[in-house]
Write a protein that binds this DNA or RNA. Structure first.
Ligand SMILES: [Mn+2]
Ligand SMILES: [Mn+2]
Ligand SMILES: [Zn+2]
Ligand SMILES: [Zn+2]
Lengths: 144, 144
DNA sequence: TACTATATAAGATTTATTCCTATATGATGT
DNA sequence: ACATCATATAGGAATAAATCTTATATAGTA
């Protein structure tokens, strides 16, 4: 057990998750990129060590780790693209459960100044605020 | 030609796009929802009037209208979900061309106050700033 | 060591999206 | 109105991401 696998094991145990070699490898693979990998890139990476690992294991494990907040995520996969008839500047409330999307407006969010150090190598086209959470209908449904 | 189809035609012509009955119906369908429909929901709506419309036409047309800024979009479809080893509070620069994602931090973005009127019926889990644009590599590649 | 709930492998399935190609049609000039 | 032709469409095949199914394996623990 190397120092790094030990650390991964610890994180898993802290969250009350079973420790399996596959999970350790997946967690280390995500951390190793230092980037924002998709599931298949994690699969390819882990496959070198575990040639028989199943894609399902990778998908299941990543999603479990996100639930337990061991890792995060940026984009919504598996979801369909959502179009918007409203072309004015506005921002969004996105329900993580039912995927309902609602607009909101806030003048103070319409000209957010991204730190210039971050923008040195990037040409912004649009800057918006995403509020992810749970909508009222989904909360009600949960109580019932 | 009803008042509404006339308006849709005008918008298409303004953008130098050919006016076809399918395009008019698609544009009206997106506007009619007043929501954030996905392509298949637009397809089903337009199918009532044009039972033989092809899914490809709907996808192609929506994407054309987004390019011409006749409509907008909220989420990335067709893309794979992207995980993130960084669990600290941070924000993202997302390249629309190569889908590279880079982190940036800005204290002033870490506690954005969403107007309470918007949040009356929503429980926020996370609020982040998404900067969409073109990364430096993609800009260089374009010039070449 | 034996038990049991949970995790995994392998492959099938589903869903969103894009590709292919033959046909149809909108815009333009006569 | 008519011919032309670049572009759009229909219909279906192909691709890619994610999930489901089921038989087997294994981590935690008594
Ligand atoms: Mn919107
Ligand atoms: Mn990040
Ligand atoms: Zn909801
Ligand atoms: Zn790029």
């Amino acid at each position: 057990m190397s120092k790094k696998t030990g650390r991964a094991e610890m994180i898993l145990r802290e969250q009350g998750a079973r420790v399996t070699p596959q999970r350790v490898a997946i967690l280390m693979a995500v951390a190793a990129t230092g980037d924002h990998p998709d599931a298949d890139s994690v699969y390819r990476h882990v496959s070198r060590e575990y040639p028989h690992i199943s894609r399902d294991t990778v998908y299941r494990t990543l999603s479990m780790m996100e639930e337990k907040k061991i890792i995060g995520s940026v984009l919504f996969g598996g979801a369909s693209k959502r179009y918007d008839p409203n072309t004015r500047k506005h921002h969004h409330l996105i329900c993580l459960r039912c995927r309902r999307i609602n607009d909101f407006s806030a003048k103070k969010f319409d000209r957010l100044e991204v730190p210039s150090s971050a923008m040195e190598r990037f040409t912004a086209v649009r800057t918006t605020v995403h509020v992810e959470g749970i909508c009222d209908e989904c909360q009600d449904r949960n109580r019932a």
